[in-house]
Nucleic acid binder design. Structure first.
Lengths: 249, 249
DNA sequence: ATCTGTTATCTGTGATCACACATAGCAGAC
DNA sequence: GTCTGCTATGTGTGATCACAGATAACAGAT
């Protein structure tokens, strides 16, 4: 179908003067979007945005009828997410969003420091000027949200995610980026608890200090300083959640 | 069924004196083993053991008929492995063992140093005496294989894996362990290329030196030294593979 | 009234069928 | 002889059906 459309365009636009050399750059790249991929993306978004609470159970058929497909694509999407620890199957075969015991939360925090620290160091060395500017832009958005009289926790959370991910993307290490994404998928449901703590969290938190230090180190091309600031950011946010005593165990 | 069996045992053995408190410790824990899990385990074993070459293609139906099941469990197992980057689907929808370009190999090596370094440090602090002895046992097996007149590369490789995994398991961080396992799943097919280089690789390699240093640091409870030795082990093995110029790109 | 044993409904798992697409092989034209 | 276009086969994807097991509601006994 792709080729046919291209030929039609060609006939209309260029007439009989033969195919111009840049034709294959003009056709849009075909993106295979299987139903399972869509469901997978939807569930991923759900978890990343923190719209699914830990311990929440659901059924394949229920999801399927909600989305409007059969149970099959849902099964595949769920099995993928289970493989990434973003969902879990109980011994009863029930599917749910995993609980987050304190020990598991601490372990994930430790892993995050290691992996995101590595990504940060690498990004500081490898980022282009445009990528640095992008990170700085998200940092400004976050700071602006924080300085509002009525900060929106969800918006701040989103800018925070964009900031971190823009930084990690600048490391140009695709597998590492994907692993970090997997970690955020797991902590997403509990990060939700963080910004739901109310606007005070945004204002009182140390996040903006750490973010400013990260951007400064990025612009100064100082990998160690950037890593230190990032680890402090992750650690203090974790301390805040742990101090709220909302995690089981 | 589990409960019924337990009651029957109870009636016969203990008569009418009521259920003894330790009854639930006598019944074997039920292990749910779905077909998809079995296929997943088989494919995992295949990749970890390096019996699947990078770029090798296969079909769901082919695998299904080889195992003796329908295509459905294979689909689920494959989709899980794809989520872990242990397999990949081409834009043509074909399934294959991923290729390993040099850049990707270097990236994985970097991530391994970070994650396995973290696991090693933690293990040195948290390992029990029994776990230390276990690691040392595998180190002896590896060294013994190396000192044989005709070293078996596959056996040495296996002992190497057992040694590393016993160490990481001793960190008692299940998620971290699982992520490391996922990394080995990805490099498994190319590690195969390493020990297939012939028995010389086993003898000439620096692995035994690093392993001895790791065990020594473990017994001395010196996390930094253990991490240094481990990183050197990973790095030099990677250098060897890179120097053989068998990786594409 | 509480507890136990049963039954009904539902859920995940696996098999089978149907379809769209991709690859390979072959025939025809230049 | 080389290339284009068509056809046949096979593959992944999705839907539907069948079954084992789990949950929950209910009836009966103590």
């Amino acid at each position: 179908m792709e080729h046919k459309t291209a030929s039609a365009d060609e006939d209309v636009e260029a007439g009989t003067e033969g195919p111009p050399p840049g034709l294959d750059t003009r056709v849009v790249r075909i993106v295979r979007q299987t139903l399972a991929d869509q469901v997978y993306g939807d569930l991923k978004e759900l978890l990343l945005a923190g719209r699914a609470a830990p311990g929440e159970r659901f059924t394949l058929r229920g999801l399927a009828s909600a989305i409007g497909t059969s149970a099959m694509p849902v099964r595949e999407a769920v099995s993928r997410l289970v493989a990434e620890n973003a969902l879990e199957v109980l011994p009863n075969r029930a599917v749910r969003v995993p609980l987050m015991p304190r020990a598991r939360f601490k372990e994930l925090r430790l892993i995050r420091c290691s992996l995101e620290g590595l990504a940060t160091e690498t990004a500081v060395r490898a980022a282009s000027d445009a990528e640095i500017a992008e990170v700085e832009g998200f940092e400004r958005l976050f700071a602006a949200e924080r300085d509002k009289p009525e900060p929106d926790g969800a918006a701040a959370m989103c800018h925070n995610k964009d900031l971190h991910f823009a930084l990690y993307r600048a490391a140009h290490l695709p597998t590492l980026f994907q692993m970090i994404e997997g970690l955020w998928l797991q902590i997403g449901p509990v990060l939700n608890l963080d910004f739901r703590a109310g606007p005070d969290r945004v204002r009182q938190g140390e996040a903006h200090i750490r973010h400013a230090a990260m951007v400064a180190a990025l612009k100064a091309r100082d990998p160690e300083a950037a890593r230190t600031a990032l680890v402090a950011d992750i650690w203090s946010a974790g301390d805040f959640i742990l101090s709220r005593n909302v995690l089981p165990d």
